[in-house]
Amino acid sequence: MKPVIAYVNQFFGQIGGEDKADYAPELRTGAAGPAQALQAQLKDAEITHTIICGDNFMASHTEQALEQIAGFLKELDCALLAAGPAFNAGRYGFSCGEVCKLAWERFHIPALTSMNEGNPGVELYRKSAYILKGHDTAAGMRKDVAAMAALANKLLAGEPLLGADAEGYFGRGIRKEVILKDHRSAADRAVDMLLHKLRGEPFQTEFLVEQEDRVPPLPPVDPSKLRIAFVTTSGLVPAGNPDHLPSGGSTFWARYEIGNRETLEKGEFISVHGGYNTGYAAENPMVLLPLDALKQHVRDGHIGSLHPYYYVLTGNQTAKGDAVRMAREIVAKVREDAVQAIILGST
């Protein structure tokens, strides 16, 4: 029997309604509320505990609530966390999402919940949990719980999933290649899609274009008063590639000293990048790292000072997660040397 932990709010945990929404997290043995219906449909699994927390408490004391819940989880054996279903309830969706995220990110416990597509929690938490596409009100409880049970059974049994659409959950921002069961060729798929598009019939694209989220711009800074570091995604390394930087799909960065140099000469530095023509860099590495120009700007008083290392990775085919991690690592490293701004050159 695999242990499962359920999460419900004060209302579905039968503590009370709005008046009890400030209810602090409580760990109860066994399945409570909708978790009982879930328990009835689980195979080889037992809901050992139910965590109950008031939605307002979670919303207004998020950190405290999560710490308490983390305290529960730390002590318990848990193969899966099942929260909700949360329907279209905004605060409940937030609570379920936060608890799922906590379970997955801190304890690597797979987590699932159910929300209606209108619930803001979907966008906030779909990358941290399996969020099943649920009904908008508790009138859909029976079906939502059944869907949760079906996915929970699959996850607990380690069965391969067929994809977000087929399993009925919101995509987690993970794209995976699959061989189609019927081996239908891309030629047939493309021509059929074209005929549908021409006739104005519905069709389903296989690649949905999504917009990236934005970071607000920082206020301007005066570089003549700052210490500046140069970062490049060009794969520029000393000849011989001492750290074996890969030609693509970088998972690590390297740094090389430039403090004692004025220029980079042909033959001293090369690019190992596999995504563009590196012949120009072989001819003159300063096509990637304009070292003489940076030094001249320091002498001309336009740059306060130059950090004595440049940082390099290979930008092509680098996984987003790796890129984010490396950016953080580089920022942390240059901050040790009081760097205050970065020039990043890409290819």
Binding site: V324, V339, S346
Partner: peptide, 17 residues
């Protein structure tokens, strides 16, 4: 992606691309 992450960390950054 890196530039966005650098800016997010509060470090001023310019992207030459």
């Amino acid at each position: 992606m890196m530039v966005k992450e650098i800016e997010k960390s509060g470090m001023p950054v310019v992207h030459m691309a």
